[in-house]
């Protein structure tokens, strides 16, 4: 009986390991391709060891004099948009979530219902009018034209997430602060925000990820190629190089994965927690 269980367990673990290896294979293939010299890339049968190896494709997409690949610039654009969106989402949703969780005022139910209801609105529905609006504001091809609409998309979700969290927090600390003479703003800033750190981190990562990875909005809202964020630059790199070689494309793809990979390795637990919060309370 015991032996049978062990065999089962070993078999299960082995199966999981094989599956995990298969799961990683595409990513390994991207890395391997990005390190090969151009002449070795299109080879049948496929070669999994990039030898001789080269960093030429990385140099090309990051620094090259060829103006086709502006991955370096796109990378910076994406960082600005990602960070900007994250900051804006954190500030606006935390400020909005606090009164919705802790204060009684007319319209509270309505505001909350509208916000939650808006989670059902697909982005595609506001695409055209949002473009018209951003054009009228003169924000096409600007950072604010990417950051602000992106933040507006995540805002409602942030409010929802933070409100749930604040509702679950014990109120005593806030009461104590109020007795010490703190006003609403001070209570929010000194007590509620610090206590909300775990969920703020989760929301921050969520907001950063969606801004970093968004594709459709920047595809239409940016006309100046030097303002393209990574996904758009990468997609165009694909068509640009399809007649040349996969090397630069794969180097670009690998580079685009780096920031979130770092965030993921550093804050693995936070992300899992964030996904958990977003999932279970959703």
């Amino acid at each position: 009986m015991q032996r049978g269980l062990d065999v089962q367990r070993v078999a299960l673990t082995a199966a999981l390991l094989v599956l995990a290896a298969l799961w990683l294979a595409p990513i390994v293939w991207v890395l391997v391709t990005s390190l090969k010299v151009t002449a070795d890339i299109v080879r049948v049968p496929p070669e999994w060891i990039p030898w001789p190896a080269t960093t030429a494709h990385y140099r090309e997409v990051l620094f090259s004099s060829s103006r086709t690949a502006r991955i370096g610039r796109a990378f910076l654009n994406s960082v600005v948009v990602g960070v900007g969106t994250t900051v804006l989402v954190l500030i606006t949703s935390a400020m909005a979530a606090y009164p919705l969780a802790r204060m009684r005022f007319p319209g509270r139910g309505l505001v909350f219902t509208v916000l939650v209801g808006s989670l059902m609105i697909p982005n595609a529905v506001v695409l055209v009018p949002q473009y018209v609006l951003v054009q009228q504001l003169g924000w096409l091809s600007t950072f604010q034209g990417l950051i602000v609409p992106e933040a507006a998309t995540t805002f409602a979700f942030g409010v929802f997430l933070l409100r749930q969290f604040i509702l679950g927090m014990p109120g005593e600390l806030e009461d104590a602060a109020r007795i010490d003479g703190a006003n609403a703003w001070q209570v929010f800033w000194r007590v509620v925000l610090p206590l909300s750190q775990p969920v703020l981190a989760a929301l921050g990562i969520f907001a950063f990820r969606s801004a970093w990875n968004d594709f459709l909005w920047p595809l239409i809202a940016v006309n100046k190629p030097e303002m393209f964020p990574l996904p758009v630059a990468l997609a165009l790199l694909r068509s640009a190089y399809s007649s040349e070689s996969y090397g630069p494309i794969m180097a670009g793809a690998a580079l685009s994965a780096v920031p979130l990979l770092v965030v993921f390795l550093v804050a693995n637990r936070r992300i899992v927690e964030g996904v958990r919060l977003s999932g279970l309370k959703g």
């Binding site: 793809a253 994965a257 993921f264």
Partner: peptide
């Protein structure tokens, strides 16, 4: 390991599979 692809953008995922 299984979570990792989810950190990639849809474009990166697409390029990977295209290849």
């Amino acid at each position: 390991v299984f979570f990792f692809p989810f950190t990639l953008s849809v474009v990166t995922v697409g390029l990977t599979w295209l290849w």
